[in-house]
Simulated scan of single mutants.
Amino acid sequence: MRLIFLGPPGAGKGTQARRLVEKYSIPQLSTGDMLRAAVAAGTSIGLKAKAVMEAGQLVSDDIVIGIIVDRIEEPDAHDGFILDGFPRTVAQAEALDAALKIKSQKIDMALELKVDHDKLVNRIVNRAEESRTRGEEVRKDDDPEVFKNRLAAYERDTAIVAPYYKKQGLLVEIDGQQPIDVVTESIQKALSSILTNG
């Protein structure tokens, strides 16, 4: 079961992905974590990424795809994986499809958590307020202005990835504003079609 999680920051992708990891024993692959691991391990692609990052540049799609392809060859990803935070652009989605095709693999489903953006901003504002009330430092990601910028970047770049998967008949939209357990149930219902066919 090879899944992609799509949705704006703060939509609950991480929470739902963790539940799937526990239920199906497949790894959740975050490109940030994989990049850091490849750099730390000193793999050939990790060394390339390190040079790019040290130069203060963004890591190219080729390098990110290379790191993902290396990672999905590891034993724990044999039965599938969950990609969270990737692909961020249609070019990345196309490159991922091409790389998987070489391995006779494909993405089984793209799950998009749909959440009203105003509600997301309110959720973050409240979370920041609660942190301040408790005397805790507000997470950088929970700064409302930073969050609005991340949301705008998502709309500009990543929101166009959903139609790419919709065209392939792989996109399933999930109402991310429901209670967490209800969202999990909706995802399970969507996945049952793959599990019964696969």
Rank of each mutant, 00 (worst) to 15 (best):
2 R>F: 07
2 R>K: 10
10 G>N: 08
15 T>S: 07
16 Q>A: 09
17 A>E: 12
18 R>D: 04
18 R>Y: 00
21 V>W: 06
24 Y>C: 14
24 Y>S: 06
27 P>M: 13
27 P>T: 08
31 T>A: 13
35 L>P: 09
36 R>S: 05
36 R>H: 07
36 R>M: 03
36 R>L: 09
38 A>Y: 08
43 T>H: 01
49 A>F: 02
53 M>Q: 07
59 V>Q: 11
61 D>V: 09
62 D>P: 14
63 I>W: 07
63 I>L: 08
68 I>R: 03
68 I>F: 15
73 E>S: 15
74 E>F: 08
74 E>N: 12
74 E>R: 15
74 E>Y: 09
75 P>F: 02
76 D>R: 02
77 A>V: 03
80 G>D: 08
81 F>D: 07
82 I>V: 13
82 I>H: 06
83 L>N: 04
86 F>R: 09
92 Q>V: 03
92 Q>I: 07
93 A>Q: 10
97 D>L: 03
99 A>H: 06
102 I>D: 11
112 E>I: 04
114 K>C: 06
116 D>F: 03
120 L>R: 06
124 I>H: 01
125 V>P: 12
126 N>P: 13
130 E>C: 13
140 K>Y: 04
141 D>K: 02
142 D>S: 04
142 D>K: 00
143 D>I: 08
144 P>N: 01
145 E>Q: 09
145 E>F: 01
148 K>H: 12
159 A>V: 10
159 A>S: 14
162 A>P: 13
165 Y>R: 11
172 V>A: 05
174 I>Q: 05
175 D>T: 01
176 G>Y: 01
176 G>K: 10
177 Q>P: 00
180 I>S: 10
181 D>N: 08
182 V>C: 03
183 V>L: 11
184 T>R: 01
188 Q>L: 15
190 A>C: 07
197 N>W: 08
